[in-house]
Amino acid sequence: MTSTDIAAEIHEYIVATFLDGEDCADLTHDYDLIANGVIDSLGLVRMVSHIGRLYELPVDELDFGPADFRSIAAITAFIGANSRALAA
């Protein structure tokens, strides 16, 4: 799985989960999801659980904060650096 694939999957997940029914043509990879209220604290929990499951991240052992989920690019980088599935 390339980082492009991961970014596309995260994009799709965000649109389906947090932006139901909206025009998301301008959801760029650097759009600030936290500052603009797309992902709030509850959304963060859902996002962590989603990527933890799908990409086999050891979320309990990892040290992370909102900055790691600020944008699609940040989330993709976080997954790339920590995924067991990708490392395997």
């Binding site: 909206e22 301008d26 603009n36 209220g37």
Partner: peptide, 11 residues
């Protein structure tokens, strides 16, 4: 204008 653009404005 889209919802994302408006959120950025609101933010």
């Amino acid at each position: 204008l889209t919802g994302l653009g408006l959120r950025a404005h609101a933010g």
